[in-house]
Design a protein around this nucleic acid. Sequence first.
RNA 1: GGGCCUGUAGCCCAGCCCGGAUAGGGCGACAGCCUCCUAAGCUGUAGAUCGCGGGUUCGAAUCCCGCCAGGUCCGCCA
Length: 579
Amino acid sequence: MYIAIEVEKHIRKKLKQTLQHLQFPDTIRLETPSSPDFGDLAFPCFSLCSVSKKSPYETAKNILSHLEKPDGVNKMEVHNGYINFWFDTNQILANTLTSIFKKGKEYGILSPKYQKVIVEHTSANPNGPLHVGRARNPIIGDTITRLMKADGFHVESQFYLDDLGKQVAILTWAFHHLDETDLSKKSMDKPDHYAVRFYQKAHELMQQDERIASEIDELVHKSELGDEDAIDMGKRSYEPVLTGISESLSSINISIDNFIPESRFVKNGSVLKVIEQLKQTAYCNEEKGAFYLDLKEFGVKGRSTKFFITRANGTSLYATRDVAYHLWKNSQADQLVNILGEDHKLESQQVNIALELLNADKKPIPVFYSFVSLPGGKMSTRRGRVVYLDDLIEESKQRAFVEVKKRRGKELSKEKMKDIAKVVGVGALRYNIIKVQPEKHIEFKWEEALSFEGNTAPFIQYATARCASILRKSKIESNVIKELCDSQVLTHESEGRLGKQLAKLPIIIDEAAQGFKPHLITQYLFDTASLFNQFYRDCPVLSADNEMVKYSRLGLVLSTKIVLENGLALLGIDGLDEM
RNA sequence: GGGCCUGUAGCCCAGCCCGGAUAGGGCGACAGCCUCCUAAGCUGUAGAUCGCGGGUUCGAAUCCCGCCAGGUCCGCCA
């Protein structure tokens, strides 16, 4: 158990006792005060005024006069209708440093929940490289995967592979009918970049020539019926693309546990079963041979109420197959999370309603994100109006290299600088995407996507490098530091503030994971690194007044480094010992 | 036309779910800090009709209604 969580529990317990004793409602919401002047945790009493018939200040005073001091708290005061609690800094510090020393990389992780979660993310059409417009998906998905693991879940990430769709059919047609010499030069030596030109050209031809369009439709039709040859043909064309996509993801520290092809649910008959069962429901109607569900009664309004589950020719549609996929996921996990672009909101709602009609007990929790657009409008693979993720990654590393060289060019080898630039570049990219809430629309600008100052990954990494540098120069083994560190001598305000911040990591992890709010982690890391920088300014470590203080500050530095690195790891970002 | 999301300083974002303590940061601007553990850092100053208009409330950035702007969806596409 973590001390910060413990102390909060103690406060809640004592408050609850007092509220019950005074016959107040006993639901308790605690807040982090707006300023350190108001302590570490606050209980607002405003909502109790209607019961007490007194002012907030008097109500708070009254409660405080009956309140026993909770363990781990050393001061309680009333200000403006709040009861403010000050933690016992020494106790928190002693407990937290011990806990960090003991757990190391595991510090912050919560106890196992013995529940399995499937996080579906990325699921991009395998017709070309990932572009920046959708790059939030894997980054948010991977971060949520990491967060939920840290929160104690067993997590599997899945990429739902649309191998029956038109995009794959177009690509397949292109590989069979086009010659590379007709195409524009590929931008990068990767299979996905190689393939996308075939796709783009075929898409263009398809729009000009109806014969081509119908050949492609024929491919789609065959594979939708589960035709093994058609599906295999598709597989041969998209597989290299998928390899390319995986390479891109891997270069930003993302790996996906399982790729689930849509065709599986056609082949094993589960799609047909879904269709049969949905037809049995009271909401199913027919229109010119095609079947649809009427969603009016489920809160869907306007023109969107018809959810078609089959075509007139009886074949299934994307969303129908998605229902089958989700039924299967129901049998595989305790909780489902989907990372989806905002364009999937209606489809997601349709799938959820179908799942409800089929009595599935678990509905996926969607995390929607808005698109990243270019200053002139949105990105499009078809029209080639894109910034590819690979280009962004490359540019990020290059810009980071320029920065490293500017600062360390005389001291470090080129290889070393490249290694640092890679970690900085990838970190900056992931951090900048995760720090803004998914639902905010982003207009892509190089300067913003790749800034290295202020609230950015390099700022955090710089703090880990400072920590590492101090530890290196002390020439003292970390085991010895852990042994000799005595938090009792860490009495400076900057030390206390930093220590209390380190104690909060597990609380933040839990909050971020439970609320699907990965941006809370960036905020926490930024605050932690800022507090460390203030400590760095105020408290000399290597030249501390005496050995005892030195060892103890080294302990705090070591702990900070571990906390920052653990937090960065949740974002798929590495810390640095040197930069 | 309808649904959903977004609108907070010159720019970017947090706070909104769960109404309350002086609306927090970052970038940029301006003024300072490297004989001292990495200045990708630190300190300070200026900068906000919280999109607009109503309402509820002792109290609204936060809840409700209307409007405006941007995004997104409304296909027998995926």
